[in-house]
Simulated assay, not measured.
Amino acid sequence: MDRTVAHDPLVLLARKAAAAGAEVLSRRDESKFNTDEKSAAGDWVTDFDRAAEEAIRRTIQTTRPNDELTGEEYPSAKPVHPSGLRWSIDPLDGTTNFVRNIAYYCSSVGVCEKQADGSEVWVAGAVVAPALGVEYFAGRGLGAFKRDIRTDSLVQLTGPKPSDSKILATGFGYDPKRREFQASVLQQLLGEYVNVRRLGSAALDLCLVAEGSLDAYVEFGTQEYDWAAGALIAEEAGTPVGRPVGYPGWQYAGLVDPSVLPLPDEDA
């Protein structure tokens, strides 16, 4: 591993924070889910979501108390004297998988830096999937990496290679109208791919594109915390990435033609 990314303080903190969330998830116990629905049937949140975000926030605030925190389960934390860094936290990406004991779930932590013009640049990110035993991480300009947690082996990620048998990953929203729109666009895309996967975690979809297991990922309507870390990891692997402009919008990575990703006539 490159010494620069190994010692970058923001990469190290992103990794530590994501690992803290994943450690909570590794204690998965169905008797302690306390499952609630959020926006629609099947859009669940559990006590593990909340506990993992609390662990991630504590880890970041202990080291960097003047950074802003935004997350899925709790209101934003805005310090009195902001540092210019903002963390975007998804404590449990793939809650449905977690509840149903499907291994594709993770803790995802990304951090961006505010620029002089008011824009933000993503500078570090980490994704830890405890049931899969893997960690992904990246720093801007420092590359992207995958670590096997069980063996501590490490590989640098270089994205998908040109292929005649491309596989596309996608996801669907909980609202029926949004699903209908997403399915209609997917039908148009499928001519370029031999098959499609729906794994249930946007963060891991992006990481799998970064490692080349998937050729592309595209989804409409993801939230920032879904892609904050994974998009940087894919980008640092040399993969084209499109982040949504506003919400809702299209998130994509890999071998995707963005010109074939329309917006709905009405908000879906």
Results as ranks from 00 to 15, higher is better:
residue 264 P to F: 11
residue 143 G to V: 07
residue 12 L to K: 07
residue 23 E to I: 01
residue 2 D to E: 15
residue 228 A to D: 01
residue 143 G to R: 05
residue 266 E to H: 13
residue 175 D to H: 13
residue 250 W to M: 08
residue 62 T to L: 05
residue 93 D to C: 05
residue 152 D to Q: 14
residue 112 C to S: 15
residue 29 D to W: 07
residue 249 G to W: 04
residue 74 Y to G: 02
residue 56 I to A: 09
residue 89 I to P: 00
residue 128 V to Q: 07
residue 79 P to Q: 03
residue 209 V to I: 10
residue 54 E to A: 14
residue 131 A to V: 11
residue 6 A to Q: 14
residue 7 H to G: 11
residue 7 H to A: 10
residue 170 T to H: 04
residue 256 V to H: 12
residue 172 F to L: 03
residue 248 P to Q: 02
residue 180 E to R: 04
residue 89 I to S: 02
residue 161 K to H: 12
residue 245 V to H: 14
residue 192 E to Y: 14
residue 168 L to Y: 00
residue 53 E to M: 09
residue 216 A to T: 01
residue 103 A to E: 14
residue 21 G to C: 04
residue 236 E to L: 09
residue 130 P to Y: 04
residue 122 W to T: 09
residue 131 A to F: 11
residue 104 Y to I: 06
residue 87 W to N: 00
residue 166 K to M: 14
residue 123 V to Y: 13
residue 79 P to M: 04
residue 149 I to T: 02
residue 128 V to T: 14
residue 63 T to A: 15
residue 165 S to M: 03
residue 65 P to R: 11
residue 219 E to P: 01
residue 115 Q to K: 13
residue 23 E to V: 01
residue 216 A to W: 01
residue 186 L to R: 14
residue 66 N to A: 03
residue 47 D to C: 06
residue 37 E to K: 03
residue 237 A to C: 04
residue 194 V to P: 00
residue 12 L to H: 03
residue 111 V to S: 07
residue 108 S to L: 07
residue 244 P to C: 09
residue 39 S to G: 15
residue 38 K to M: 10
residue 193 Y to Q: 06
residue 81 H to R: 12
residue 183 A to N: 00
residue 234 A to C: 12
residue 86 R to W: 01
residue 169 A to C: 14
residue 264 P to K: 09
residue 145 F to Y: 15
residue 116 A to D: 15
residue 31 S to H: 12
residue 52 A to V: 10
residue 110 G to P: 01
residue 149 I to S: 02
residue 46 T to S: 12
residue 237 A to N: 02
residue 258 P to E: 08
residue 223 Q to L: 10
residue 62 T to S: 07
residue 46 T to R: 04
residue 97 N to S: 10
residue 69 L to R: 04
residue 39 S to Y: 12
residue 123 V to T: 15
residue 60 I to H: 00
residue 160 P to G: 11
residue 65 P to F: 13
residue 12 L to R: 13
residue 226 D to P: 00
residue 214 L to P: 06
residue 151 T to G: 03
residue 20 A to V: 01
residue 163 S to D: 15
residue 10 L to V: 07
residue 236 E to P: 08
residue 150 R to V: 02
residue 97 N to Y: 08
residue 246 G to F: 02
residue 257 D to Y: 14
residue 144 A to L: 05
residue 39 S to F: 13
residue 2 D to F: 10
residue 27 R to I: 01
residue 96 T to Q: 15
residue 76 S to V: 00
residue 101 N to G: 03
residue 189 L to V: 07
residue 69 L to Q: 06
residue 102 I to R: 15
residue 184 S to P: 03
residue 224 E to P: 06
residue 99 V to T: 09
residue 229 A to C: 06
residue 22 A to L: 10
residue 233 I to V: 09
residue 138 A to R: 06
residue 103 A to C: 09
residue 87 W to G: 00
residue 39 S to D: 14
residue 55 A to N: 05
residue 153 S to P: 00
residue 79 P to G: 05
residue 1 M to R: 05
residue 103 A to N: 10
residue 244 P to W: 10
residue 197 R to W: 03
residue 109 V to H: 06
residue 58 R to P: 01
residue 127 V to T: 00
residue 147 R to F: 06
residue 4 T to S: 11
residue 82 P to Q: 00
residue 255 L to M: 01
residue 80 V to S: 15
residue 91 P to V: 07
residue 217 Y to G: 02
residue 138 A to W: 06
residue 241 V to S: 06
residue 24 V to R: 04
residue 180 E to F: 06
residue 263 L to F: 04
residue 103 A to F: 07
residue 29 D to T: 08
residue 128 V to L: 13
residue 106 C to D: 11
residue 189 L to M: 13
residue 1 M to K: 05
residue 213 S to F: 04
residue 159 G to A: 07
residue 163 S to P: 08
